[in-house]
Amino acid sequence: MMTAVVTGGAGFLGSHLCDRLIAEGFRVICIDNFITGSPDNIAHLFGNENFQFIKHDVTNFIHVPGKVDFILHFASPASPIDYLKLPIQTLKVGSLGTHKALGLAKEKNAVFLLASTSEVYGDPLIHPQNEDYWGNVNPVGPRGVYDEAKRFAESLTMAYHRYHGLQTRIVRIFNTYGPRMRLNDGRVLPTFIGQALKGEPLSIFGDGSQTRSFCYVDDLIDGIYRLLLSEEVYPVNIGNPDEITIQQFAEEVLSLTGSRSKISYHPLPEDDPKVRQPDISKAKQLLGWEPKVSRTEGIKRTLEYFRKIINENNG
């Protein structure tokens, strides 16, 4: 049985990844310190003989006894609310945390997969974004703490590959949504759904003309799993290229929820990307991957999850 360590395994994506790896027959060791993750996301795995949880801050030395075959580094605040509230922790987990996770991979001779982000492209000057684009990032702006943490993590991962011969993978994750997101995490979809279900105005920053491309979590995890088992060293975009404006997206959420909420407009945050759309040609060619869940279907599934959460909280 293969053993995989997932840092940030109690987070939104990390917990879904733990589920997928266990379903594929892996033994999974989940490491998290619950700064942004939640025990609720992995509660269903406690008692599973192939799941182990370690509460630990990965910016400190990581000790895992026994054989480890794969290390998937997903520990990091990822939503704007989190990384703006935790700027130093975000930089530390991208630098020190990545260094410690790579050190564990080197010790165990394990395959290392880094969860990077489309934010390495910054406010892009090319569209759609492919993996050869170097990005347009403001290193001293408020978003720089996340963007540059991930850019450094990519550089460090490649250094370990080139200098130590470590087997490495880098996934650049574009906007993803689905169950286990937090309603108040500052990302567009949970914010819109939460506001719509509560009858509050939907908050659009700017005039709503900026675009995003939303990928359902099951599709994303499938792409990551395929990348893990591949031999591709350089970054691969995983996301859904179905681009939509924020204005259109707000109207879509209102329609699917049946909400009578209005839309309110607010100033655009500093360095907020105007466009975001992945070029997934590489993922299609190398991994045979492309998203399968439509946005309408994905929103319906996510909506069901959030309705349940809101009902429980009001219960």
Results as ranks from 00 to 15, higher is better:
residue 92 K to T: 03
residue 209 S to G: 04
residue 309 I to K: 14
residue 52 Q to M: 04
residue 287 L to T: 01
residue 77 P to M: 00
residue 108 K to W: 06
residue 173 I to L: 15
residue 86 L to N: 07
residue 238 I to M: 03
residue 157 T to W: 06
residue 273 P to T: 09
residue 282 K to T: 11
residue 125 L to T: 14
residue 286 L to V: 15
residue 211 T to H: 12
residue 48 N to D: 12
residue 98 T to E: 02
residue 165 G to I: 13
residue 143 R to W: 03
residue 93 V to P: 02
residue 79 S to R: 08
residue 279 D to W: 06
residue 139 P to G: 11
residue 139 P to M: 09
residue 129 Q to Y: 02
residue 254 L to I: 10
residue 79 S to C: 05
residue 108 K to V: 01
residue 13 L to F: 06
residue 61 F to Y: 11
residue 37 G to F: 00
residue 146 Y to K: 10
residue 275 V to C: 05
residue 172 R to D: 06
residue 277 Q to H: 09
residue 36 T to I: 11
residue 291 P to H: 04
residue 112 F to S: 07
residue 125 L to S: 09
residue 31 I to K: 05
residue 285 Q to L: 14
residue 253 V to T: 05
residue 286 L to P: 05
residue 276 R to W: 14
residue 276 R to C: 14
residue 74 F to Y: 11
residue 30 C to H: 00
residue 148 E to D: 02
residue 161 H to K: 14
residue 218 D to T: 13
residue 108 K to D: 01
residue 76 S to I: 02
residue 264 S to P: 05
residue 44 H to S: 09
residue 182 R to A: 12
residue 290 E to T: 10
residue 310 I to D: 03
residue 303 L to W: 05
residue 266 H to A: 06
residue 193 I to E: 00
residue 180 R to F: 13
residue 190 P to G: 13
residue 297 E to I: 12
residue 241 P to R: 08
residue 284 K to Y: 02
residue 173 I to H: 03
residue 227 L to M: 12
residue 271 D to H: 11
residue 95 S to W: 08
residue 294 S to C: 00
residue 195 Q to P: 07
residue 28 V to P: 13
residue 65 P to H: 07
residue 210 Q to Y: 11
residue 102 L to A: 13
residue 105 A to M: 07
residue 305 Y to W: 14
residue 231 E to V: 07
residue 241 P to E: 02
residue 295 R to K: 15
